[in-house]
């Protein structure tokens, strides 16, 4: 089950609150306090396919300029 520590880099000209609302509502994401226009979060997913879907959802958000990776822990294939 993959656990990823990610940082979203946000467009400077997009409002922050709609994205934060959407992130908070997402059941597989845990977000921390944004630092300027960077949002640290954890994606905790049940399997690799699910993980890919979450990643795709993040990338598709118009406010998101880039997704940076801070940590990966994935033991699902040997569990």
């Amino acid at each position: 089950m993959p656990v990823s520590g990610l940082v979203l880099l946000l467009h400077p000209d997009q409002p922050l609150s709609p994205l934060l609302d959407a992130l908070e509502r997402h059941p597989d994401l845990m977000i921390a306090e944004p630092v300027e226009r960077r949002v640290p979060l954890v994606a905790d997913t049940r399997d690799a396919q699910h993980d890919k879907e979450v990643w795709g959802w993040l990338r598709a958000r118009p406010e998101v300029l880039d997704v940076a990776v801070a940590l990966i822990h994935d033991d699902s294939r040997n569990a």
Partner: peptide, 25 residues
Amino acid sequence: FPALPEMDRREVVRFAALTAATGLA
């Protein structure tokens, strides 16, 4: 990645991931 034993420590991993992400930001 080979499995960590005692993977009921998922909370620990989540916390570590959040710490890493927050630190990176």
